[in-house]
Write a protein that binds this DNA or RNA. Structure first.
Lengths: 344, 344
DNA sequence: TTGAAAGCGCTAACAA
DNA sequence: TTGTTAGCGCTTTCAA
């Protein structure tokens, strides 16, 4: 069995290095950990031996005493249909990896896909394999949240956790975009363009805090402007966006604008509009949300959308976890801005 | 600093459980590891105490003595532009995760993105955080290969490693599709359709074994049929496929078929053909490679392509690592089949 | 600046 | 069936 084969016997230990360099284990340990009260000659000699022997510290032994692993888990839900094809997550993860790298920590990505994964991931996190965890998209009833609490593992959430009991923070740090404010910017822009029959394709607002907030922002502005709302719910996929757009047009063929709660869905909506022979922005103005370059710049016409600095969100999550945040359980909401392209 | 906070003091240890249940540590250990020579009453009592105390075994301590972690690293290169939007990798990873899960092992994904990542990932792998590694897309000169050897970490490669010295196996197990055979199937199909001016969009054949093999398979058939070849090289991206198709048409406007070495590139090629006003398959027949449903079924017309069971490849990689393979360093090449759709 | 010794939390002989 | 004992390989006081 491949897994049990080790190429050449036993790996060298600290003790081997110590013996071979004629010093004590403590001294070798000091050299490895870069302590300065070691004479230069000794340090050099030890380093030579380390290289010669190909010594690599055993992390398990080190962990056992230091209680640190140098690794941070990034727990990604439902990769099945969304995650891996989702540029949003791609950006977020890049920010996370870069910031963790700055701190010398290794990001390890774990997937939560099938129901059985849950127990294994929980065990992994609880087992002390990592120093902390970065988590996403928690939904009402998600047990991961309690688990993190129980294990006492430091954690930062991406997106404000939406919990069953309405208590959505409970001591956990999170990083989120200003979803409600961003939605307001988008819809205000449509109003300022003179549009009056403004629909929205909302995300799964009963499931995700962000979707609920974007819908609320949309309603805020329409209420202010005494305009009627027209809402269709979709699932944050391209196909979902296309379907929702079709449903909106069936309900209200004369709508003149639509705020779509994600760029991916917006690109689906644009497809539907094109199929129905409607011109964008002349007949229907479209504003998206996210400003994912790979989508927003590639659509025809390019998408006007609400920008969130997703990579920065990732960096902030990692930074908060690594202790750069103002205080322990603090959270961050980052502002949004409207990026005008051609669709509105 | 968030990372150092632990919710409620010291976590309970095996010893705590032992004391509280009035048995020895060994007995508790036996209960935890499911050994059967423990009386039912004692086992129950111990389990109660474990639950009561919320005890979770310290993996570092366990690892130190067992030399096993229960985790396997999946090392993914260059997520930057390709990986995360690549359905191929998505399928592969799913197969890997499922098979590892069957063995109770946790898949942890590590990224190799920026040059600095290399050292950190190497340290991580060498540090004993995982029991084995699954690696991809190794290229000539890739140092990861030597590193794996040096650390003596069991590893299985996805795609046959192409090494500098031409020795492409060197004791490492790998799983690969039958690239050459698949390419032959594709091109033979085009020949059987009566096509005689058959071009190919090849992958980076100086960089990747698979690309070289697919090109070789294409040439095999043309040589047999005494037909001239026409090759354009691209980089496995959609845009690259589109550009290469354009170049082919510029060189040989009357070509009547093209074998494109990946579905993603094929979808780019179809775009170019459409732009040039050429009908598929009437004017130009197109065959792809991979049979990624999300692409091949979505193109217009749907793509005839060479199917590789990518999820199965992932499963095999994991299975080989976990010791289900016939022998230690064995490798597997899985067969391909032609899936006929509308493009040829 | 260096070394000796204790101990991190667990498993695995070996005894009982 | 259960307990005793000896480490696993490292860091870290404490002395020298």
């Amino acid at each position: 069995m491949v897994l049990t084969q080790r190429s050449n016997g036993r790996r060298p230990t600290l003790e081997d290095v110590a013996r071979r360099s004629g010093v004590s284990k403590s001294t070798v340990s000091r050299v490895i950990n870069g302590e300065h009260r070691v004479s230069a000659e000794v340090a050099d000699r030890v380093r030579d031996v380390i290289a010669e022997l190909g010594y690599v510290p055993n992390q398990a032994a080190r962990q056992l005493v230091t209680h640190r692993t140098g690794a941070v888990a990034v727990v990604a839900p439902q990769p099945e249909n969304r995650l891996f094809l989702d540029p949003f997550f791609d950006c977020l993860l890049r920010g996370i990896r870069r910031e963790l790298a700055r701190h010398g920590a290794q990001a390890v990505l774990l997937f939560l896909d099938e129901p059985e994964d849950y127990a294994r991931v929980t065990d992994y996190l609880a087992g002390g394999h990592v120093d902390g965890a970065l988590l996403f998209s928690l939904r009402p009833g998600d047990r991961l949240h309690e688990m993190i609490d129980k294990v006492g593992l430091p954690a930062v959430f991406g997106g404000r956790p939406l919990l069953r009991d309405g208590d959505s923070v409970r001591g956990h740090a999170y990083v989120d975009g200003d979803n409600r404010g961003g939605a307001r910017q988008a819809v205000r822009h449509l109003v300022s363009l003179g549009r009056r029959r403004i629909a929205t394709v909302a995300g799964p607002y009963d499931q995700e805090h962000s979707a609920a907030e974007r819908l609320a922002g949309y309603r805020d502005v329409l209420l202010d402007a005494s305009l009627p709302d027209l809402v269709e719910r979709a699932d944050y996929t391209l196909r979902g966006g296309a379907g929702a757009m079709a449903a909106l047009l069936d309900r209200r063929p004369d709508l003149d604008a639509v705020f779509v709660a994600s760029d991916l869905m917006a690109s689906g909506a644009l497809q539907t509009l094109r199929e129905r022979g409607l011109r964008v922005p002349q007949d229907v103005a479209v504003v998206g949300f996210d400003d994912l370059a790979s989508i927003a710049e590639a659509t025809d016409p390019p998408l006007t959308t609400v920008r969130q600095d997703v990579e920065e969100m990732g960096r902030l999550m990692a930074g908060l976890l690594m202790g750069e945040g103002p205080s322990e359980a603090s959270s961050v909401v980052i502002p949004t801005s409207l990026v005008r392209r051609r669709s509105a």
